[in-house]
Design a protein around this nucleic acid. Sequence first.
DNA 1: CGCTAAGTTGACTGTTCTCAAACTTGGTGG
DNA 2: CCACCAAGTTTGAGAACAGTCAACTTAGCG
Lengths: 240, 240
Amino acid sequence: MQLQQASTADRPRSGGATRWAAPRDAAPPPQGGLDLIEQFGTRRLARRGQEFYAAGDPAQFCYRIVSGCVRTVGLDEDGRRQVAEFLLPGDLFGFDSLDTHHLSAEALTDTVVVCYPRRAVDALAEQHPGLARRLRDLTLRNLRRAHEKMFLLGRKSAGERVAAFLLEMAERTAPGAEGTHIALPMTRADMADHLGLTIETVSRTMAQLCREGAIASCKSGIEIRDREALANFCAGGTRH
Amino acid sequence: MQLQQASTADRPRSGGATRWAAPRDAAPPPQGGLDLIEQFGTRRLARRGQEFYAAGDPAQFCYRIVSGCVRTVGLDEDGRRQVAEFLLPGDLFGFDSLDTHHLSAEALTDTVVVCYPRRAVDALAEQHPGLARRLRDLTLRNLRRAHEKMFLLGRKSAGERVAAFLLEMAERTAPGAEGTHIALPMTRADMADHLGLTIETVSRTMAQLCREGAIASCKSGIEIRDREALANFCAGGTRH
DNA sequence: CGCTAAGTTGACTGTTCTCAAACTTGGTGG
DNA sequence: CCACCAAGTTTGAGAACAGTCAACTTAGCG
């Protein structure tokens, strides 16, 4: 399942754009100090289900998503799973590692990434304090998000978790828009393992949100019908 | 409740060592690139309950604990609380912030810290790539710990959470030692808000661990009686 | 067109929460 | 020194939320 470098490699500006590089879902290259690393980026395609790296692997590469969706996953000896994050076009991953990755990263859909050798990134950071700063800020933002997620997992009800998740996905894919279609490329099992619930509870909760008119379910996604109601649900919809 | 700078400030090497600077619980200054910032450190005493900073405050200082114990806390509008971490001598905090702190930090006991101005730390990091690297690694380790905690909160039972917490505290205060006294300077409420449980559940679970002989409770702490049993409890003690 | 994986729904169980009361503990002042 | 008080902790009984098990439906794919 490991990503094949040779077979899917693709020069950064090579003319042969595949359908994965279609402009409508392509994420722009990063701004700020991070554009320095762009010269070392290599474009790659990962098929649905392919693994970018496994937990414990040496951290050789970091990635930026151009199109598609990726999940980072932790697994314990009992087979219990925790999906740390879902990553969308524009998101970076694999930067948040020391010598080895402690989570695995897998493509949820066919995904195009730009891939940077860590060695080059680290060397560049040595010379450019601005880049080093950006990398630290990136990690700090991830840490902040992790703390918010800890709060979600430790202190929120099933309803609040699902509603918060849907709002987050909506915000990330179509900021501010109401009534638009939100793609949910992950399975119920992925959502459950992300939210600390079971697939049945996720399914039931989404059914309830439909019944109450907050969302409508389309195929492989939802539509936000009543953002207000969803946000409300976030802060104690089930609790009295 | 905000920490008073003037009244508690204390020059780094001033002779007037208070009882808080007693050598037996004093943590050594940091090694690696981090010792560079030591020249800017100022020693301070925070009384039990005092706040180093609140969520939303501009991030002006970062801290290293010399003795005592600190908690970082997130609070939401409903009054629900999440204790992100407990910090012990040698631990650093306040480094994991962007412009503002997103958690508050409070002293659990009378605590001596060394306090570094962020402005100086950042400026130093600009000039010393090694320090910048160390700061990023520090944040990365925090992120890794946050991910482990997410797993704990999302996927483990009450028994596993409490057992894991006690083992973690044991490991941090007396690595490898069995039968030693482990201080627990936090209240049951703090533990509950850290583990995503209620005080009653924490209390009941600890009572059960006592009954089973894994631990014994001393005043304001516990003694690990059977590390094996505790570790066992960690990985599915209540589950079949 | 049937196979498999994913999703839904229902009935039931159980862990954890809630509410309430009794019980420690530590500090304060008479 | 002891009584008192407040804060924290323990324990119990019952309720509720989410989990488990199982049947069924739907969707995707050869």
